[in-house]
Amino acid sequence: MQVLYFAWLRERVGAAAEEVDPGDAATARDLVERLIARDDRYAAAFCDLAAVRVAVDQEMGDLDSPIDGAREVAFFPPVTGG
């Protein structure tokens, strides 16, 4: 699946988007744990999960949202538009 990062999560991960094999990750939280295990950059990006928001296939969700069959999962901080 395509995994996207925005704002300071993008900066800490060092990528705006990447293809990730979700393996047996059932939720966004599982995916985060899988990423953290891969590299310190993810540990830095996801060090404060309370500050992480999630969208699955461009619909706002949360860390417990199922990602099974999703094409696109995005991680970002709370939004600050307007």
């Binding site: 925005f6 704002a7 706002m60 995005a74 970002f76 901080p77 939004v79 600050t80 538009g81 307007g82």
Partner: peptide, 14 residues
């Protein structure tokens, strides 16, 4: 619209 936009539209200011 403004209240919802500020909390639901995916924009980030730097």
């Amino acid at each position: 619209l403004m209240d919802y936009l500020k909390t639901k539209a995916p924009f980030w200011k730097k």
